[in-house]
Nucleic acid binder design. Structure first.
Lengths: 223, 223
DNA sequence: CTCTGTCAAGAGCAGTGCTCTCTATTTTGT
DNA sequence: ACAAAATAGAGAGCACTGCTCTTGACAGAG
């Protein structure tokens, strides 16, 4: 319909982006806790109330930044996968790229994988972007011969795993799917501990520990 | 020296405790983000400025709550270990108790294993209490015959692992120590994902997945 | 009994998110 | 082309925050 936007619409889209950019810049400096609408407005040379024409609340702004962050880390993971070559190498590359993004954008990472910011709410807009890293890992396993792994799986977990198998469209038993979830958990658990200082005193720096974990978890899922 | 305190000292200690209790109560309701010194004071029937005689800043109050939380979850983990019996059962009991505590005190948990609250700072007071859960797991492995596990360990990681071996006083090779760290990471990674809603859409509820993870990680470390 | 250190209280500062009203400007419909 | 409608930013203001400084009261030690 409106292939060409009106001047207002273009201005609005641009300003919306500028607000997000400035907010992201401040986020990197003072963290989510210290992000102030008024400071953002001030920096953009406008008055604070004008911001509310673009974002109905501070939390909505943060939610938008969350979605962006999920997409950014997901894209980083996807781009790290060459799509062909040794599956173990692809797997490792994705782990590495995910951690690298997190270390480069600690506050944005904390926004999505730290504690939920307000009184806890995860809008529906976030679930799809949030799955991108996991899907990048799954992609490595599809069209790849996996070592079959047996193991007792409790009934409810088995059902959950089988549902996942269908959704993801992979050929793997419930034990393997469960292990994949564990690997996913391990990936972000390790990044969390690294970024939030829990490895200080044990494996600090954690670089080698991280790549070691990546390799062991590749074996663990049967790659 | 001062076995008996003066009336003032006793009053001070009591009030300090009351402040922390009230703060903890509010924390459970509104989360760390919403914790307000003025509200705490109001509830205690005092004026906000009086609170500063007991805690020099809001962050110091939070830091005290953090230390308490580390000790509480650590104690829960320690108490769950019967000290004798099948190591696998002890291991599982600790995992379970840790998760239970986290689910019972989500905001306190978020305080210690979520994103660091202010401009990031982990005072030295927190490192000892923070290690208690991990040490409870280690305790299960001491005086227990572990399945020996070989595996290539990169030089720096090997050195870190060997230092840890000495500190912890366990008999295990670097591969096993590294795997123990991975299990520790997996434990809190799973609790994080569960509490912060990342398992919604895959393994929700995550109860069976969690106990499955606990068992698999027990095998993984050679238990 | 006086003197000194500790205490709660009050006022106040600078900052916050957010709402409401007013005015200027752009877009739209006739 | 012109009036009507929608949208923009500005300003004032509310209720709240953490935190500081000063003041007056009181307890404990000499």
């Amino acid at each position: 319909m409106t292939a060409t936007k009106t001047a207002r619409e273009r201005a609005r889209a641009e300003l919306t982006q500028e607000i997000k950019d400035e907010a992201r810049r401040q986020l990197a400096e003072v963290g989510a806790h210290g992000l102030s609408l008024r400071a953002v407005a001030r920096e953009l040379g406008m008055v604070s109330s004008a911001l509310y024409r673009y974002f109905p609340s501070r939390d909505r702004l943060l939610t938008d930044l969350i979605v962006d962050a999920y997409n950014a880390i997901g894209e980083a993971a996807e781009n790290a996968d060459p799509g062909k070559g040794a599956p173990r190498d692809r797997w490792l590359a994705i782990w590495q790229a995910t951690r690298d993004w997190a270390r480069a954008h600690p506050h944005e990472y904390a926004l999505i994988y730290g504690s939920p910011i307000p009184g806890y709410q995860a809008p529906q807009d976030t679930v799809a972007p949030a799955a991108r890293v996991a899907l990048a890992l799954v992609k490595v396993l599809t069209h790849t011969e996996l070592r079959a792994i047996d193991g007792e799986v409790a009934p409810e977990l088995r059902a959950q795993a089988e549902t996942l198998t269908k959704v993801l469209g992979i050929v793997a038993g419930p034990e393997t799917v469960t292990r994949l979830l564990m690997a996913w958990t391990q990936l972000f658990g390790a990044i969390n501990f690294d970024l939030f200082g829990q490895y200080v005193g044990s494996v600090d720096p954690a670089d080698e520990f991280f790549t070691h974990s990546a390799r062991r978890m590749a074996e663990f899922v049967g790659l």
